[in-house]
């Protein structure tokens, strides 16, 4: 069996900025293998965002070890962490976090500006290919404010994919979207996962978590449940159902 992409052992995070130190993550051990699609759930304050930040190498654990693709990232400095984020991780945020007044294509090119040297043409080709994967190749020269929320989130996914990361990390990617658009975005994630891309996603919506393969529930900084998703939903089938329902609604109203 191949070594896990993520191997976390007894991870702790203590914030001591206030009067009382806050023990946000209290000893999480976890392995994520290549090709998994993990939903990370929990109430607010359960430590899921903190865990996600550490998984994303945006934050360093107070205690414990974190092996990402065999590299112990707990001890790396700021710049080395930046390189890891650039080469091994892809981020999708709740608020999309696209650069405004910058085209979809340029947004998708962004991580390549900070990676190894590439020609302008190569960067453009790669960004276009990733926009194609998320179905937005024809919107490459649109600005974020000319795109719908779902389309903006798909641009963000294209940006996350552009450096061929080991893991795609999504922090409430459907939090700002309506249910139909959410299913659309989950469809993109499922398609990517089918192609073998590892995805870890934070969500607090149960029905969104049902599109994943593995469900982790966090409470008070520890994992309280870790099980495969039983009644898994398939985005394309759900979209068909919605379309049928909409058509029926049109018929009755007409």
């Amino acid at each position: 069996m191949t070594p896990p992409v993520v191997k976390i052992d007894n991870l702790h995070k203590i914030y001591d900025s206030g009067e009382v130190p806050v023990h946000a993550v209290r000893g999480v051990s976890l392995e994520i293998h290549k090709g998994e699609f993990v939903a990370l759930m929990g109430a607010s304050g359960s430590g899921k965002s903190t865990l996600m930040n550490m998984l994303g190498c945006l934050d360093r654990p107070t205690k414990g070890s974190y092996l990402l693709d065999g590299i112990d990232v707990a001890k790396l400095d700021r710049n080395a962490l930046a390189d890891i984020r650039n080469q091994k991780l892809g981020f999708v945020f709740q608020g999309f976090n696209l650069l405004s007044r910058t085209t979809a294509l340029e947004n998708a090119e962004l991580p390549m500006l900070y990676g190894r040297r590439r020609s302008a043409k190569e960067m453009r080709d790669r960004a276009l290919r990733c926009l194609e994967i998320v179905g937005l190749a024809n919107r490459a020269d649109h600005f974020p404010n000319q795109l719908s929320g779902g389309q903006q989130q798909r641009v963000a996914i294209a940006r996350a994919l552009v450096n061929e990361p080991q893991i795609l990390l999504a922090d409430e990617p459907t939090g700002n979207l309506d249910s139909k658009t959410s299913i659309e975005v989950m469809g993109v994630f499922q398609a990517l996962n089918e192609q073998g891309i590892t995805i870890v996603m934070v969500t607090h919506e149960l029905d969104i978590a049902r599109y994943c393969r593995r469900d982790l529930i966090l409470r008070d900084g520890v994992i309280v449940r870790d099980e495969p998703v039983h009644d898994r939903l398939i985005a394309s089938a759900e979209m068909d159902k919605i379309r049928l329902a909409e058509a029926a609604a049109k018929l009755t109203s007409a």
């Binding site: 700021r78 710049n79 930046a82 984020r85 981020f91 650069l99 500006l113 900070y114 940006r159």
Partner: peptide, 15 residues
């Protein structure tokens, strides 16, 4: 926010 995005996708402080 833009700076945050750039740092998140791998920009060094120097960049």
């Amino acid at each position: 926010r833009e700076i945050g995005i750039r740092l998140a996708v791998g920009a060094h402080g120097r960049d």
